[in-house]
Amino acid sequence: MDVNLRKSIILEHYQNPLNKGLTNDDSYIKINMNSKTCIDNLDFEFKINHGIIEDIKFDGEACAISTSSSSIMSDLLKGKSIKQAKQIIKNYENMINELPYDKDLLGEANCYDEIYKQPNRKKCALLPYEGIKDVIDKLEGVKNDKK
């Protein structure tokens, strides 16, 4: 992706994030993602019914990368089935970790395709995806020892 386009997507989602602001509605699954290695601290809400991610909200204090990444993820995964979401997440993680991936699945999230050049920001780009993975794992009853 062109460097200026990449930066303008990130900035747009940082300065005008989509789905920012929590509903505090009990029908949402809530999770706090407080990065262990930096100062990002985001709360997420996911509304998942019958295997479909109906809504995603987030709020908190975080850097440009985590905030924009949360905004883009919320837009990308909304309306998707858990199965589709897992495929997108896997491809996104592969992109961040310099492994083969399908860029057609990732939409604007392709703007992080060179984040590996700033290794200490990879975790920022991954933070929201770690959050939804935790939620999906719990929903599917998989014990997740990673967190």
Partner: peptide
């Protein structure tokens, strides 16, 4: 500018500062 973004920017220039609480 969020403190962490400042540090990421300075890091690109080889300057090490700490951010956070």
């Amino acid at each position: 500018v969020f403190a962490q973004d400042v540090a990421a920017y300075l890091n690109k220039k080889g300057i090490c500062v700490r951010v956070g609480s």
